[in-house]
């Protein structure tokens, strides 16, 4: 690496990181939070005994998982305006990513709820709890423990997937990198640098995930 290369890498580092801080990270956090709420609702709908309700949830999950994220993103940003619904880049991206996370995480949440032993429902009902109170106080906290590892993986995937938002003009990490690369012509160096920043973010997230799992493990035998 020449001195020129090095100074380009160093001078572009802060703009790329700031693209992460103002773009990638808030985009991922917002979408994940909304997606998680959506996922719990869809998971409960999917578990409903009412056929129409569980059918709707099944349909939603099937569509989300059966179509590319990039296509979902384009339908919202480039497709909706043609039926008169103009949505800005940021809301479009958040909507697409939330809907996507909602579909994937719903299956995780559903499996976690089903993994809680039936005896827990029985004990909850025995002490007089209604279905909804039992769900909130006894079942979901235990399901949350089970779903932390797979949900962390979903979040880490989401962080990387937000790079797709560069294609609908959201100024996040990758779009920032593209602009600098195009301007300087140093594609290899800058894209490697972008990869490095994504990697660092994911390493930090993995560490957070481990800490969270340890904390939640305190009531489980080893």
């Amino acid at each position: 690496m020449t001195g020129e290369d090095l100074s380009l890498v160093l001078s572009s580092f802060w703009p790329i990181v700031s693209g992460a801080i103002t773009g990638t990270i808030p985009l991922a956090l917002c979408s994940f939070a909304i997606g998680l709420v959506l996922a719990v609702v869809v998971a409960l709908m999917r578990l409903s005994r009412i056929r129409v309700v569980s059918g709707l949830a099944r349909f939603y999950i099937s569509v989300v998982r059966g179509t590319p994220l990039l296509v979902q993103l384009f339908v919202i940003f480039y497709g909706l305006p043609s039926i008169g619904l103009l949505v800005d880049p940021w809301p479009s991206a958040i909507a697409a990513f939330s809907i996507n996370v909602g579909g994937y995480a719903a299956e995780i949440v559903r499996a976690a709820i089903l993994s809680v032993p039936k005896g827990q429902w029985e004990a909850a009902h025995m002490i007089g709890m209604s279905h909804s109170v039992a769900l909130r106080r006894i079942i979901l906290p235990q399901a949350a423990r089970v779903s932390v590892p797979p949900l962390s993986n979903t979040f880490i995937s989401l962080v990387k997937d937000t790079s797709l938002a560069s294609l609908i003009l959201v100024n996040e990490l990758f779009r920032t990198t593209q602009e600098i690369a195009a301007f300087s012509g140093e594609f290899m160096l800058l894209y490697l640098e972008a990869a490095l920043v994504y990697w660092i973010i994911c390493l930090v997230l993995s560490a957070v995930q481990n800490g969270l799992e340890k904390r939640l493990d305190r009531y489980v035998a080893h």
């Binding site: 004990a123 007089g128 709890m129 235990q142 009531y219």
Partner: peptide, 22 residues
């Protein structure tokens, strides 16, 4: 099989019904 609530302490297990339900 006891069916205690694993995410609650012994005391929380016992007071859950009296406090939350009753």
């Amino acid at each position: 099989h006891y069916n205690l609530f694993p995410h609650k302490t012994v005391l929380e297990n016992v007071v859950e019904g009296p406090v939350v339900v009753q």
